[in-house]
């Protein structure tokens, strides 16, 4: 049986799609058969971040409406052979995601994959609700600022009340906090909430901290999931995230401001 993981946040622009792409790639790197689904109907982005936008012929909505078979819509990743992308439609809207249609596709994916990663749209409307409905685990992506934390809190409430697991009275969804765009220097300067502040407010286990970095922008412009940006702190941080998700212990990195070396200070680096 596949495990379904929703990447969600409430607020837009916090890094859901970047995280979905990197996280799914990380699972696939470790040998798990993984599929990542774009639930953001009408604002198709995941295919861009995964660099497969030119290979989209059929999409998730076509499959839901019986216009294409699942195998026709699944796109194999260009870098990892056990990673597939199920892109969404740019021309339809969220109402095209019917409850029964999504359930049918999820059931079919269950038999073929180890992990199903659902990239949720922002907001708390039908698209976001469909994305989280089937989840076994959730990665709540949060930026270190108050409005993002408030929206994450709202999404956590919805996860606990409106998912399939909640409706069936099953064991609740496993909740994971992922803090993204973290800039330790700005935290120190009091411009950003600290990791402790966010944890104190949301009170769910921490999966990782992704530092704010130029690399993310470069990666998505090139259509390469950030975890492949070798040697970068972002890639290392996402590798840690995948490891922790799979139950390994990893110490936290990139949460302290970089120490300026003696020479750097001397010569103004």
């Amino acid at each position: 049986m596949a495990q379904t993981v929703v990447v969600t946040s409430g607020k837009g622009g916090v890094g859901k799609t970047t995280t979905s792409a990197a996280f799914a790639s990380g699972l696939a790197q470790r040998g798990y058969r993984t599929v990542v689904i774009d639930f953001d109907v009408g604002l198709r982005n995941l295919d861009l971040v995964m660099g497969c936008e030119r290979r989209v012929v059929y999409d998730f909505i076509n499959v839901i409406h019986g216009e294409a078979r699942l195998q026709q819509a699944l796109i194999r990743d260009k870098m990892l052979e056990n990673l597939y992308i199920l892109p969404t439609s740019q021309t339809r809207d969220k109402d095209a995601l019917t409850t029964e249609g999504v359930a049918r596709v999820m059931e079919e994916l269950q038999t073929q994959f180890d992990y199903i990663v659902c990239d949720s749209p922002a907001g708390i409307e039908s698209g976001a609700l469909r994305a989280l409905y089937h989840a076994d685990a959730a990665i709540v992506v949060t930026n270190p600022e108050v409005s993002s934390v408030r929206d994450s809190d709202r999404i956590l409430g919805i996860l606990a009340a409106r998912s399939k697991r909640a409706e069936e009275g099953a064991e609740p969804i496993r909740e994971h906090l992922l803090l993204t765009r973290y800039a330790p220097k700005r935290v120190q300067g009091g411009e950003m909430l600290s990791l402790d502040d966010v944890q104190e407010l949301l009170r769910i286990p921490l999966l990782g901290v992704i530092p704010e970095s130029e690399i993310i922008l470069q990666a998505s412009n090139q259509g390469i999931p950030a975890i492949h940006m070798q040697g970068s702190d972002v890639a290392l941080a996402y590798e840690d995230v995948v490891a922790r998700f799979l139950g390994e212990e990893r110490p936290l990195r990139f949460v302290q401001p970089e120490k300026t070396g003696f020479f750097k200070r001397l010569f103004g680096g």
Binding site: I124, R150, D151, D153, R154, G157, A160, A161
Partner: peptide, 8 residues
Amino acid sequence: SQPLRSGQ
């Protein structure tokens, strides 16, 4: 026993 979250 669960925390009450924004919107609840």
